[in-house]
C-alpha cells in the first residue's frame, strides 16, 4: 500500500468520524443529507459482499466493517434516534433515490468487467459512490450557511477521493498492467463533483470566514 492510498483511507475514516462526532455529541444532523447517507450504505453493502468470501488483510476487513457499520448507524441515528431525527431537514433533502440508483444499476448492467452478480454489483457500487454525494451538495446549496463540522465532513470526503486518484497514478507507474477504466472514470467523476465545493471551501479559509455557498 502506498502513502496516497493510506492517506486517502485515513481521510475517509476521518470524514466518517467527524460526522458521527457531530451526530453523537451535538445530537444534531442539521445540514446532513439522509439521502446521501442511505446511498453510501447501499454502496458499502454491495461492494463489501466479498467480506465473507475473500480475505485480503486485517486492515482491509476492519476498514470494511467500519465503513459498513458507520454508514448504517448514521442512517439509524437520522431516522430513529428520538433527538437527532428532529434536527433532520426533511423538506430540504428532497433528492429522489431512484433518480440515482436506477441509472447506476442500468449502467452497471451495460458496463462491467464480467457478467456475474459480484462484478455487476461491484461496478454498480462504484457508479453509485461517484454520485452519492449529490443530495448532500444540493442540501448544502439550499441551506447555504454551513456549520463547521458539516463543511469539514464534505471536505474530508472530497480529499479522500483526490488522494485515491494520486494512488492510482502511483500504482499505474509502479505496478505492471494496472489499468482500471471503470474505477478510474467513476473516481474522477466523483472527485470533479467536489470541485465547486472545494473552491468555496478554500476561499472561506483564505478569508478566515464562515463557509457560505452562493445562491
Amino acid at each position: 500500500m502506498n502513502i496516497f492510498r493510506l492517506a486517502g483511507d485515513l481521510t475517509h475514516l476521518a470524514s466518517v468520524l467527524v460526522l458521527l462526532l457531530k451526530i453523537h455529541t451535538i445530537k444534531s444532523c442539521a445540514g446532513i443529507s439522509l439521502k446521501t447517507q442511505e446511498l453510501y450504505a447501499i454502496v458499502f453493502a454491495t461492494r463489501y459482499l466479498d467480506l465473507f468470501t475473500t480475505y485480503i488483510s486485517l486492515y482491509n476487513t476492519l476498514m470494511k466493517l467500519i465503513f459498513l457499520g458507520s454508514s448504517f448507524s448514521i442512517v439509524w441515528y437520522i431516522r430513529k434516534h428520538k433527538i437527532v431525527r428532529r434536527s433532520y431537514d426533511k423538506d430540504q433533502d428532497t433528492f429522489r433515490h431512484y433518480f440515482i440508483v436506477l441509472p447506476c444499476f442500468v449502467l452497471a448492467l451495460i458496463i462491467h468487467e464480467k457478467f456475474t452478480v459480484r462484478e455487476v454489483l461491484w461496478a454498480f457500487s462504484l457508479y453509485l459512490e461517484a454520485v452519492a454525494i449529490l443530495p448532500q451538495l444540493v442540501l448544502l446549496q439550499r441551506t447555504r450557511n454551513i456549520d463547521n463540522l458539516t463543511g469539514q465532513y464534505v471536505f474530508l470526503l472530497g480529499a479522500y477521493r483526490a488522494l485515491y486518484i494520486l494512488n492510482w497514478i502511483y500504482r499505474y507507474f509502479t505496478e505492471p498492467h494496472f489499468v482500471h477504466w471503470i474505477t478510474w472514470i467513476s473516481g474522477l467523476v466523483q472527485t470533479l463533483l467536489y470541485a465547486d465545493f472545494f473552491y468555496y471551501y478554500f476561499q472561506s479559509m483564505k478569508n478566515n470566514g464562515k463557509l457560505q455557498l452562493p445562491a
Partner: peptide
C-alpha cells in the same frame, strides 16, 4: 484487468 487487481482497495 479485473476487479481482483483492486480488491485490496476500499
Amino acid at each position: 484487468a479485473s476487479r481482483d487487481d483492486v480488491k485490496d482497495e476500499l
